[in-house]
């Protein structure tokens, strides 16, 4: 049992974030979202609900889109993480999806946007890998890329809430990068 004054248990981990290795000592209670924002100064991923309900904290970890608010950092030793800051690669370039969000005015306040972008990048890879969704025809052949129409995009992006209601622009931006 930890006494009031004893330091909380922690461990040293190494993870790569946007291609750069970081070795940190983390309190076991630290979630990835707080590690990114507080320890690494990467404030792109946003803290919305902090309970996995809004998607504002979505990042890519181990090639999957995940809610970083529910991931204990200590479980990620050796992991590869990509945040919105890393979507465009090393330089200042924007990812085609970021360009499409600008073109389609796919945000108002912008708070959910980093999560929407990371989620959409992960979602496009899932569909390309043949992952079905709730609205995919169950009779569609397994293992083939799934064509993304509007109902598919809306269903697959349902884990990212936008309180400004920019959904029509978000769906249009995602459609732009598919075409």
């Amino acid at each position: 049992m930890t006494s009031e004054n004893a330091p909380a248990p922690g461990s040293e981990i190494t993870l790569r974030v946007n291609g750069k290795p970081h070795t940190l000592y983390v309190d076991h209670r630290r979630v990835l979202l707080d590690l990114l924002r507080e320890d690494l100064g990467l404030t792109g991923a946003k803290k919305g609900c902090d309970h996995g309900q809004c998607g504002a904290c979505t990042v890519l970890a181990g090639g999957r889109r995940l809610n970083s608010c529910l991931l204990l950092a200590v479980t990620l030793d050796g992991a590869e993480v990509t945040t919105v800051e890393g979507l465009g690669g090393d330089g200042e370039e924007t990812h085609p999806l970021q360009r499409a969000f600008l073109d389609r005015d796919a945000f108002q306040c912008g708070y959910c946007t980093p999560g929407q972008l990371c989620s959409a990048v992960g979602m496009l890879a899932e569909a390309a890998a043949g992952h079905p969704s709730h609205v995919t025809d169950p009779a569609a052949p397994s293992g083939r890329p799934v064509a993304l129409d509007r109902p598919e995009i809306r269903e697959r992006m349902s884990g990212n809430l936008c309180r400004c209601g920019a959904y029509p622009g978000i769906v249009a931006a995602v459609e732009d990068v598919i075409e």
């Binding site: 998607g55 889109r65 995940l66 809610n67 991931l71 992960g122 899932e126």
Partner: peptide
């Protein structure tokens, strides 16, 4: 069930 992100975890 849940969302794409949650099902991935």
């Amino acid at each position: 069930g849940a969302s794409g992100q949650l099902r991935n975890a």
